[in-house]
Amino acid sequence: MKILVCISNVPDTTTKIRFAGDNSSIDTTGIQWVINPWDELSLTRALELKDASAGAIKSVTVIHVGAASSEPTIRKALAIGADDAIRVNAESADSYYVACQIAEVVKKEQFDIILCGIESSDYNGSAVGGMIAEFLEIPSVSAVSGITVVNGQSVMTREIDGGKEEVTVPSPFVAIVQKGIAKEPRIAAMRGIMMARTKPVKVTEPVSAEPLTKIVGFEKPAPRAACKFVDAENPAQLIELLLNEAKVI
């Protein structure tokens, strides 16, 4: 059994976002790039599954669509414990383009379980996982907060409105994961960092694909009014303001 984990390279989540070039792009000066938080949790869970599988899960591969500048993020995934990596050598144009590239690789390399984070923290698109599944015409399960593999069968917990379901689908499939999939992201140990240097990163060239969307500009969220303080000795005044001024209770 082989697991593929899709990883996106995003600005550290504490980054203060600034725009460049007439607000048409993000100013990347000084940005720390990291593995997308949900992808890091997916990778962690994939490694846990492999460790617990008594050899049934042969490998955990990470895949990333991006330029050579994203190699440090790929090396980090290898340091955390992925066995090998594939980089599709292309700038990610949009989710459709990225999903198309990953699907092409899967067609050639055959994976049983494909894990994707629920969204990337930059474009918040929540689209790549489901698109990969549709390109490959295989099942996808979304909002997955738990996954185990028992005798080759994957059992998932998925979040629904006000509850949970336990579901199974036949392999191969795409699981789109969210919080709960792993408790804490696994941290790279020194040994892992050393080993990562020699692990294979296969670089493949993209197939031709037409992106369907394009970001043409950015704007900041509308500023909020300054905070109005209520005296801690008279909290009832807060309720009065919420009732009569904001009219929200």
């Binding site: 999903a99 599944a133 549709e134």
Partner: peptide, 9 residues
């Protein structure tokens, strides 16, 4: 989020 990406393709 489960349906829209599949419809997109």
């Amino acid at each position: 989020k489960a349906i829209a990406p599949r419809l997109s393709v």
